[in-house]
């Protein structure tokens, strides 16, 4: 799955942000773009990133598995990354997570059978004053002040988009 020429051009642009010989710095920004294309990070794509940056494949795997935003296994089309940390729980995040599990009939970390949703509780999203909160890639828009009703309409909306 070679990268499009547009992506390759973008990669070269990103590499220019760093001094000569320091282009490994481009790894995280590039992985975000690759994940945008595939929804996750297949090994073949990571190997190509290694080639683009002239680093060893293991260096890419080491990084991709360290950061929680990168999915190294296939995920649903919409990954619901919902905050599970203390301040959000003070305002009801646990209820919302429980509701999502029941509504989607999946456990944390699982994907719905139709491949549409993955439920992924995450740690604090710096939105503690507007919790409960979740976000969905690749634009990672914040959905704040979550209520059961908001969850219902969000899920409906995403289902109808398919």
């Amino acid at each position: 799955m070679p990268f499009t020429s547009e992506r390759l051009k973008q990669f070269e642009e990103i590499k220019k942000r760093y001094p000569e010989g320091r282009h490994k710095s481009a790894l995280l920004p590039i992985l975000h773009l690759v994940q945008e294309d595939h929804g996750w990070l297949p090994v073949a794509a990571m190997d190509e990133v290694a080639e683009v940056l002239d680093i060893k494949p293991i260096e890419v795997y080491e990084v991709a598995t360290f950061y929680t935003m990168f999915h190294v296994k296939p995920v649903g089309k919409y990954v619901l990354e919902i905050c599970r940390t203390g301040p959000c729980c003070l305002v009801g995040a646990e209820n919302i997570i429980q509701y999502l599990k029941e509504k989607l009939n999946i456990e944390e970390g699982e994907t719905t059978k139709d491949g549409l949703f993955t439920l992924k509780p995450v740690e604090c999203l710096a939105s503690c004053g507007t919790g409960p909160v979740l976000q969905i890639g690749p634009d990672y828009k914040y959905h704040e002040h979550l209520t059961i009703e908001k969850i219902d309409s969000l899920i409906d909306e995403l289902r109808s988009k398919g």
């Binding site: 090994v43 060893k56 293991i58 260096e59 795997y61 080491e62 360290f66």
Partner: peptide
């Protein structure tokens, strides 16, 4: 001349692996 293994994941689920 070429390292093929490393530390994957993080925290107490980190592991030494070649990944593939």
């Amino acid at each position: 001349d070429s390292r093929v293994h490393g530390v994957l994941n993080r925290g107490d689920v980190s592991e030494i692996s070649t990944y593939i």
